[in-house]
Design a protein around this nucleic acid. Structure first.
Length: 875
DNA sequence: GCATCATGCAA
DNA sequence: TATTGCATGATGC
């Protein structure tokens, strides 16, 4: 049996809009109505399993009803813009679901629905009408049910004849008479003044229709009522007419065209992703169904032996590695797409082919990839040099908008309007189930990927040029990815025996501490469990609760420090935590990822992740090796040069972020301070506390340092108060005095927010961008966060630009000068090298020179550098 | 097996 | 209710 669902699009969108808080996605697009609409739609599809569907919308402002009554729907509130802007998204959603939508000039959604429900009724189809508008109840029949939203959006009630009778005591076709009598303020239908629902129903039960009421008006009880009815006779009849749904709308659809069933799940999921409907993505994105859907045909050849014709330039290239960690990983296969054809090349076929290997290392043969570093490194491990990388889609996508959490090819393809392809996860599975599929599936997927890269290259470069980001892309990030690839492949040598020895020492001390703590507590428990620890401290020992987390008591270090006086156990716990951290994260963690044969660690630098342009490091993270406390700093003793007699050399920018601030804000006082190479925190203390250099106490310097940090982060009085342990008022006073001392900084902070609001984004020195749609959010927290980000990102991002430029330049210099020294690591404002002894002096000169001259600012850049036998000693 | 939380390490 | 990150163990589904 056929089942048709007819949805009143406008009505449901309105309901959803007002039922849900104003959500928006990271682009600042409001999504609450779309979200409500979607959940309702999914619920209907799931529960009703319709064979046919249609969503009707109101078309223009005027309809045939306005001819009858000019004031129809007059005095209505204008649709809020926050809602209007969501209608195109709702249409997009329906298209993705392959659900027919329909609107027609001169008619309302009601009329379309009425017409089609009558039509379907004739064919004896089951019909469900979904709306928030009671008017639709007039359509109810043996075949037609009307589903009305009750409260919220998915809470609904289904009306059949019985329920209408129960609620109102009338038949569905009497709804219009009811409306005629009582009117409808929301549509500005007048009805009969003084007649409400109660009176209307009473009259209808007695007389049946408005016409009968008016004909037999003498039998109506109540003098006043009778007068009103006579007086408003025409108005009542007109009101009935207005409320009557017109069921003969001219339409050029057949019922068959409303068929619902097949739709592009990937399209739906990518739309959900764009809208940030995370919970809905999870419902869909199981990957199984997406894998079954049909894609446009694409022809390609499987290469059995590499020949000239398979290798052209330029070529889009896919080097597929399923492991997230590409170091020493297996290559699943290759794909090449160029003007001569599309090819899948099995791994062995490619690697044993001299032709292929020569082509790969020929820099005149241009290659276009997604995540070039990944390709370069994985081939590097197979002793195949990949050169001539001319375009990296990953970097392009990242630079155009770093906010996208995924730069997976299928996501980029969707965003950029290329041919849609399956997500890797859908083809390969995820987690433990991830595996190389059968060759046919793999081959096709890889060729499709290469095809999309080929298709998108020009467009992406155009977009970069339009944003004035092409230089950043081509001259900075692309060369940098090669440098990073080399750093990763080279790896850092560790003294594994020393690490293990430190681990044994820590383990025995931890056991001792654990014993003490359990004794003090009088009970044995897991100290690493915040839950158990909280119970022991705050329930068993009755210590005062300072702070709570959403799941229980907070036991963080700042809380425990406040309790240190109250109980001896606390300092043991703090010590246990400190050592436990070192042992699990830094000893055991590093031992786990150190290569058995070479004793080297190969991190991966993510070049397309942070919102500011910094790098990040994973597997392991070598950008957070301890340094502040001596105990942890010792870990650095285990990081050693990879060759006998070599040295570790560390060079870090001094106060790069505050220097960048001085430059951007063009603040004379700060610029002078840096030109004179003053201690910047002391200088700040002098200016904020109005004292001379000799009178700056260590306390004052400490406060000034915290204020400087705050300025860089986008200051808030609360944040500063937390960091200094003072009241918010005192913190606010500090900030005020700082901004009064550095008026150009104050001006910068205001200007950058204003600019960001106008442009929608902030930029760094080298034109890196970050979009900040939340600057216009009505949510205070969101907006404040965006404002701090607007202040911080140009600073942090420019600092990132500078060190990246220094790295590329440094790599060039090493090559030109034929030096053996190698760049190993970057830690945001410092570069770590390993250096043969005979090059130490040279490097101590070259490195600061390159770093300090990476860019020219209104202030000098300063680099501190030192060398030692281990990373620890390079201080 | 996977996701989330609290915690703590770095610049 | 300060910026950017990543890894850990515990916990719960």
């Amino acid at each position: 049996m056929k089942k048709l669902i007819l949805i009143d699009g406008n009505s449901i969108a309105y309901r959803a809009f007002f039922a849900l808080p104003l959500l928006n996605n990271d682009k600042g697009v409001y999504t609450n109505a779309v979200y409500g609409f979607t959940t309702m739609l999914l619920k209907i599809i799931q529960e009703e399993k319709p064979s046919h569907m249609l969503v009707a919308f109101d078309a223009g402002k005027t309809t045939f009803r306005h001819k009858t009554y000019e004031e129809y729907k007059g005095g209505r509130q204008k649709t809020p813009p926050e809602l209007s802007e969501q209608f195109p998204l709702i249409r997009e959603l329906l298209d993705a679901f392959n659900i027919k939508r329909f609107e027609l000039d001169n008619y309302e959604a009601d009329d379309i629905i009425g017409t089609l429900s009558k039509e379907a009724e004739k064919e004896k189809w089951e019909v469900k009408v979904v709306s928030g508008d009671k008017d639709l109840l007039q359509l109810v029949s043996d075949y037609v049910t009307v589903v009305l939203t009750k409260k919220g959006i998915t809470n609904v009630e289904s009306y059949d004849e019985a329920l209408i009778d129960e609620k109102y005591g009338i038949k569905p076709n009497q709804i219009i008479d009811m409306k005629g009598l009582m009117g409808d303020s929301s549509d500005n239908i007048p009805g009969v003044p003084g007649v409400g629902e109660k009176t209307a129903l009473k009259l209808l039960k007695q007389f049946g229709t408005i016409e009968n009421v008016l004909d037999s008006v003498d039998d109506v009880s109540g003098k006043k009522l009778k007068e009103k009815l006579i007086e408003n006779k025409e108005q009542a009849l007109m009101s009935k007419e207005l409320a009557t749904i017109f069921t003969e709308v001219p339409y050029n659809l057949t019922l068959d065209e409303l068929k619902f069933g097949e739709y592009d799940e990937e399209k739906v999921v990518s739309l959900f992703k764009e809208l940030e409907f995370k919970s809905l993505v999870d419902q869909f994105d199981t990957g199984v169904s997406a894998a079954e859907k049909e894609l446009e045909e694409l022809s390609f050849d499987v290469v059995e032996e590499v020949k000239e014709e398979h290798l052209a330039t330029p070529a889009a290239m896919v080097v597929e590695v399923l492991d997230e960690n590409y170091h020493q990983a297996d290559i699943a296969g290759f794909a090449l797409v160029h003007e001569k054809g599309r090819y899948f090349i099995p791994t062995e076929t490619a690697l044993r082919s001299d032709l292929f290997v020569e082509w790969a290392k020929d820099e005149t043969k241009k290659k276009w990839l997604l995540d070039a570093k990944r390709g370069v490194v994985v081939l590097g491990w197979k002793d195949v040099l990949l050169d001539g990388v001319d375009f990296d889609l990953l970097m392009a996508s990242y630079l155009l908008d770093p906010s996208h959490s995924s730069h997976d090819l299928s996501d980029i393809a969707t965003r950029k309007g290329a041919k849609s392809i399956q997500a890797d996860e859908a083809v390969y599975g995820k987690g433990a189930k991830r595996k190389v599929p059968e060759t046919g599936v793999l081959a096709e997927h890889l060729v499709r990927k290469a095809n999309v890269i080929y298709e998108l290259k020009e467009q992406m470069e155009e977009e970069l040029k339009k944003n004035e980001q092409f230089k950043l892309f081509k001259d900075l990030e692309m060369p940098l990815s090669v440098v990073l690839g080399r750093m990763e492949t080279e790896g850092v040598k560790v003294d594994i025996d020393q690490l293990k020895a430190m681990g044994e020492d820590l383990a025995s001390r931890l056991a001792e501490l654990e014993k003490h703590i359990h004794e003090h507590a009088g009970v044995s428990f897991n100290i690493n469990s915040p839950k158990q620890l909280g119970e022991v401290l705050f329930e068993k020992l009755g210590l005062p609760v300072i702070k709570k987390t959403k799941t229980g008591y907070s036991t963080s270090a700042d809380v425990l420090e406040k309790l240190a006086e109250d109980h001896e156990i606390i300092r043991h716990i703090l010590h246990y935590r400190q050592l436990g951290k070192l042992n699990s994260t830094y000893i055991e963690g590093l031992v786990k990822v150190t290569h058995k044969d070479t004793s080297k660690i190969h991190t991966r630098f993510n070049q397309a992740l942070t919102q500011t342009g910094r790098l990040s490091s994973t597997d392991p993270n070598l950008q957070n090796i301890p340094i502040r406390l001596e105990e942890g700093r010792k870990i650095r003793k285990a990081f050693i040069p990879s060759e006998e007699g070599w040295k570790i050399l560390a060079a870090d920018y001094s106060q790069i972020e505050l220097r960048v601030l001085a430059h951007i804000a063009q603040d004379e006082k700060l610029i002078t301070a840096f030109k004179e190479d003053m201690d910047i925190h002391t200088k700040t203390a002098m200016d904020v506390f109005h004292v001379s250099e000799e009178d700056v106490t260590s306390m004052m310097r400490r406060s000034a340092k915290a204020v400087n940090f705050g300025i860089v982060y986008g200051i808030s009085d609360y944040g500063l108060s937390q960091s200094l342990g003072i009241t918010r008022k005192e913190a606010a006073k500090f900030i005020e005095r700082y901004l009064a001392s550095y008026p150009n900084v104050a001006e910068y902070m205001e200007r950058i927010i204003e600019e960001a609001r106008e442009n929608g984004y902030v930029s760094t020195l080298l034109n890196r961008r970050r979009y900040l749609p939340e600057l216009t959010s009505r949510n205070f927290n969101q907006r404040s966060f965006a404002e701090r980000t607007a202040m911080n990102t140009p600073i942090q991002g420019t600092a990132a630009d500078i060190i990246k430029k220094a790295m590329v330049e440094m790599a060039l210099r090493l090559e030109e000068a034929n030096l053996k020294s190698r760049l190993l690591l970057q830690v945001h404002d410092e570069l770590i090298f390993e250096v043969p002894p005979e090059e130490v002096d040279k490097m101590m000169k070259i490195v600061p020179e390159v770093m300090e001259n990476a860019v020219e600012l209104a202030v000098p850049l300063k680099v501190d550098i030192s060398a030692g036998d281990t990373w620890y000693d390079a201080k």
